[in-house]
Design a protein around this nucleic acid. Structure first.
Lengths: 349, 349
DNA sequence: GACGCCATTGCATACGGATGCAAGACACGG
DNA sequence: CCGTGTCTTGCATCCGTATGCAATGGCGTC
């Protein structure tokens, strides 16, 4: 049909196009396009005929071409930075799954500290993603974010950026931290401490302020406030030991579960204390590890599924498109009491 | 310049195109294209002039259009399925970072068990990704994989599929499992057990066969072989308790670190055994948790960075393109001895 | 001074599908 | 049998960039 004489294996077999399909079937290319466009004006039997034939010859519409003409990519850019905290990989996985369910693919943008951010983010603009979801805990300034997301839907998860004019979906850190403080108080703790991860993140500031404030309201003593410097197990251990050396406390609230896990192990193994008899430990997030019997961590559960549902919803209904007023969704979490803070707890699970 | 009278906020500001830029500058659109194409035939000063002006008016080449005309997307599809094991999220994160470093973005394809796989994977074909990296441990049959990756570069990580004709990069499971067996033997263990995760995965089969074989070679007794059914902490606990109830062992090799962590906790807390005095525990992968002092897990470290480097290399140099002979790269790992198996170990780190 | 070569540049078209518009098909009512 | 309206279908063009080819201009050489 084409030039003969060309060895079949050398001819890079391009996939079949709508035009070819159309010619074979004796219809127009538009018809093929319409057959694959839900709601397009086309007779049902023609559509069936085309779709069936397409299957036979293994035709698949080329999404790239479609993106170009529709200027819609069905791709959401997910910006992440450092993933020390296992909470985030889990979140990303669920998020990408939810997006997929509504026909959106996830393009990952892994921002690393070192090099220049603009270059890394310029791909965000060049790829014309429909929307951007930012999960990076840190690194990006409001200005950079505004630049990177200019003109497209954008959404922050678990973070607020004051000067970026972006909508966000977050867990109610304030209620969560207050709940932890209340829980400490109600179980008889009076000398408490707080361990932050990255002290400058909004997440941390919210948790810290709310906790410290509530502690004061309740008349408890804040014995120590330690900045672990990162959200890691080791940092949690170090912070816990620092608190012990500084005179101790009878309850520690760690800014997240990973820190708490490290802290709890250190308190037991290095400091020789009994948790929760000598000292109570609480975290934040409710990652998988928190429910492991060894840790049985009291924590504030982030409503991951709801966060994702709201985020995906906002992208679908366009409420986070530029021009729309920004919305800040704070979703309620849930205090999970386990035996790291409360002996008599019967909810050992 | 255009139709006046259109309120500026209603006119959806399309980003500026190469043609517009060219017109403003009095050059041809080709010149603009060439200015942004490394190695293209264009005078250095013209290139500079265009690039500078582009910056002023905030022009960014539209990657979609470029993909269409070059039929190259610079996107790698990463197929993942269920991410119970934290080893994989960590791997994905590093992988996407490495890909980004060579100019490739990662498009996530999250395959879920339930619905029909073809539909989920058809996006892989429609998006015209340059290459596909499959990390899903299970689910996909060789036939499905062949279909999904037809005509493009494809690569499996940490998995072999016999009937799919795909290259893969994996850790040397055989050497690893033998090393664990040897280590048990050398430290005086004689009654060992093996705990599998998903028993039908090639990963598990390789580890199990190698371990069992080596155990027999060394004349040790295989007291038990338990299938945990999934790669989770809880499953590890259950498997460990099952072994204890069946009469115990003096060393258990768990198919991965998460299982081992659960098993270790159960042995200590539920069974009241001393690890490593009464029983040694080893895992596989060397995830972050393995080095936590509480676990201090003896394990076989997967050469993650090397795996990624090789994978990215194979994609870059095209050695996993269809037509090329498939290659199976088995990379050596490293036995990491910690105190879950060996008391006198001074490498407490 | 003529010729040839190379570096630049623009022109035209391709990439594969979406869609406004108009034409054709068909039904129904008058 | 004609007018009107609805449903289908094809035509032409557009989306924004890449690139083969030809045209241009400059420069060195004999």
């Amino acid at each position: 049909m084409d030039k003969p004489e060309i060895p079949e294996d050398k001819a890079k077999r391009r996939p079949i196009t709508a035009r070819q399909l159309a010619r074979m079937l004796g219809v127009s290319q538009s018809a093929v396009s319409r057959a694959f466009t839900p709601g397009a004006s086309i007779a049902p039997d023609l559509r069936d005929r085309i779709k069936q034939f397409a299957e036979e010859v293994d035709y698949h519409p080329n999404a790239i071409a479609s993106m170009l003409s529709k200027s819609r990519t069905n791709i959401v850019g997910i910006v992440v930075s450092d993933m020390q905290n296992p909470f985030y990989p889990a979140l990303i996985e669920k998020l990408s799954r939810s997006l997929q369910r509504v026909g959106l693919q996830s393009l990952l943008f892994n921002i690393t500290k070192g090099s220049n951010l603009e270059e890394q983010l310029s791909a965000l603009r060049r790829y014309n993603v429909d929307a951007v979801i930012i999960i990076s805990a840190t690194i990006l300034s409001g200005q950079t974010l505004r630049w990177a997301t200019e003109g497209r839907a954008a959404l922050l998860i678990n973070r607020v950026v004051e000067d970026a004019d972006l909508s966000c979906v977050i867990c109610d850190n304030v209620a969560g931290s207050r709940a932890i403080a209340d829980h400490f108080y109600e179980t008889g703790r009076r000398r408490v401490a707080y361990v932050s991860g990255l002290s400058h993140t909004t997440t941390n500031r919210e948790r810290q302020n709310a906790f410290v404030t509530r502690v004061a309201e309740l008349g408890m003593t804040l014995c120590a406030r330690v900045d672990a410097g990162e959200y890691s197990y080791e940092a949690g251990r170090r912070a816990a030991m620092e608190i012990v050396e500084r005179g101790g406390a009878d309850a520690i609230f760690f800014a997240n579960d990973i820190l708490a896990a490290g802290g709890l192990d250190a308190l037991r193994e290095e400091a020789g204390l009994s948790v929760p008899d000598d000292i109570a430990v609480a975290g934040f997030d409710d990652i998988a590890l928190a429910s492991w019997p060894h840790y049985a961590l009291t924590t504030f559960r982030q409503p991951v599924d709801e966060i994702i549902a709201v985020a995906v919803g906002m992208i679908e209904d366009g409420s986070c498109y530029p021009g729309r007023p920004i919305t800040i969704k704070r979703l309620p979490g849930e205090l999970i009491v386990r035996s790291s803070s409360y002996t008599i707890s019967r909810s050992s699970k």
